[in-house]
């Protein structure tokens, strides 16, 4: 570069190494084989079958944390952090495996357990954790997938009532 003018923008344009590596010298259009795609989709639905067991494991963990909250109030902040973490793990996945209700319930659980370390955690908050646990357990026990029809609706309604009661007691 002979010019002393300052460079304002640099554009980097590279040879498409990734295409060379995956499409080789094949001219024209390249695709992912439909068979491979179908096989992968099948594997995903197979994994979805394991999903309720996996969630049950997480619900047990939530239950342990809830028990600790009740027994040892001084540990509540730590427990809430753990619960918040598990809830986050759950909320991103329910929809993928056909259990959007788990995602919804995990989402509100995640929302109200996102507390600061010096916040005081009340008994009512602990109760609300319990309501969420019960709702999730009911979803998994009944294998309530999708919107869940009437059962799903009534679970959502009763959980929302618990949330409202909590919020009005707080305001």
């Amino acid at each position: 570069m002979a010019s002393n003018k300052p460079v304002i923008v640099r554009f980097y344009r590279f040879q498409n190494r990734l295409r060379d590596k995956t499409a080789g010298l094949a001219p024209g259009n390249v695709s992912i084989s439909p068979e491979a795609l179908e096989k992968a989709e099948k594997a995903l639905s197979k994994m979805s079958e394991d999903y309720p067991d996996w969630v049950s494991g997480l619900i047990v963990k939530l239950q342990e944390q809830h028990g600790r909250c009740v027994d040892s109030p001084e540990l509540r902040n730590d427990c809430f952090e753990a619960i918040n973490h598990i809830a986050h793990d759950m909320k991103g996945q329910g929809g993928t495996f056909g259990y959007p209700l788990i995602t919804n319930f995990a989402d509100t659980l995640y929302g109200f357990t996102d507390t600061r370390s010096d916040d005081e955690i009340t008994d009512r908050q602990i109760e609300l954790v319990k309501s969420h646990l019960d709702a999730m357990r009911a979803v998994i026990r009944g294998r309530v997938s999708g919107g869940g029809g009437e059962i799903g609706k009534s679970l959502t309604v009763s959980l929302n009532k618990a949330i409202e009661a909590f919020e009005s007691s707080n305001s």
Binding site: F11, R19, A23, S31, I32, T96
Partner: peptide, 27 residues
Amino acid sequence: AKPFTISNIAEKLVAIIERPRQFVHTA
């Protein structure tokens, strides 16, 4: 974006291979 499907993953792969973008470097 979660939740995703296998097709979503496959689409991203193909887009990255077939439509790479130049890199831009400014201040």
